[in-house]
Structure formats: C-alpha cells, structure tokens
C-alpha cells in the first residue's frame, strides 16, 4: 500500500537527517564548509515554496494583478515581518489581509 511506503519513507529520511549528528557527537568533526552551506538551506527551501504559491495561485499562470489575494496577503506579511520581526504578528497580519482582500474583491 502506497500510503504506508510514503509515511515510513518520510519518517525514515527525516530521522536520518535529525539523528546522525547527535549519534556521532564528539567523534566526528563536521566539515566547516558543509556547516556553512547548511545555513542557506532553510531560506532557500522556504522561498522556493512561497514564490510560486503566491505568484501562481492557480498553479499554471502568473497572476501579478490586484485580483490576486495571495499576492496582497504576502506583501502585507513581508512588510510586517520586515518591520516587526515577530512570527505570530506576521501570520495574523498576512491572514487578515488575505481574507479581507477577498471580501473586498467580492463587493
């Protein structure tokens, strides 16, 4: 059954990312070059998810117009995140702008 393979596969790769450094702690020197490269992983992965989701909400074509509520919500979130540096506030402001804009568009 594919679902079983999927869940076990995801669980195994995730644990094999989290555990080896702990397991080998103190016995192996982690190469500095690799440690420096790893710093770029979180923003690279997250941005690669965010940008198409915001600019191509229908999954096929670019939508850069004001009718794109994803874009409006994202711009508000970026502004709040930049000035406030507060995760919870960024989420709340972005969601509020996203839903508020959709209601405005329907009026």
């Amino acid at each position: 059954m594919n679902e079983v393979y999927l869940i076990l596969g995801m669980a195994v790769v995730t644990f094999l990312i989290r555990y080896p450094m702990f397991a080998l702690a103190g016995r192996v020197e982690f190469p500095k070059v690799l440690a420096r490269a790893l710093r770029y992983v979180p923003p690279a992965v997250l941005t690669a998810i965010i940008v198409p989701a915001v600019l191509m909400p229908k999954g096929t074509t670019l939508n850069l117009s004001y009718t794109n509520a994803y874009l409006v919500g994202a711009l508000v979130a970026v502004a709040v995140g930049w000035f406030k540096r507060n995760l919870l506030l960024t989420i709340v402001a972005g969601m509020t702008a996203f839903f508020g804009w959709q209601i405005l568009l329907r009026m």
Binding site: P42, P43, I50, V78, R85, I91, F98
Partner: peptide, 27 residues
C-alpha cells in the same frame, strides 16, 4: 484558501534570515 496559512508562516520564518547579503542572494 487556508493553504495561505502555510505560505504566510513560511514568510515569517524567512524574514529573520535576511540580515546579510548571501542570504538575499539565496532568496
């Protein structure tokens, strides 16, 4: 469009990284 909750959470997680030039290049 509740999938936007994930997008906005990720935006909040990326913002604190944007303090140095290489991070801007990455993004």
């Amino acid at each position: 469009g509740l999938d936007f909750a994930m997008v906005v959470t990720f935006i909040g997680m990326v913002m604190p990284y944007l303090t140095e030039k290489p991070m801007w290049a990455t993004v």
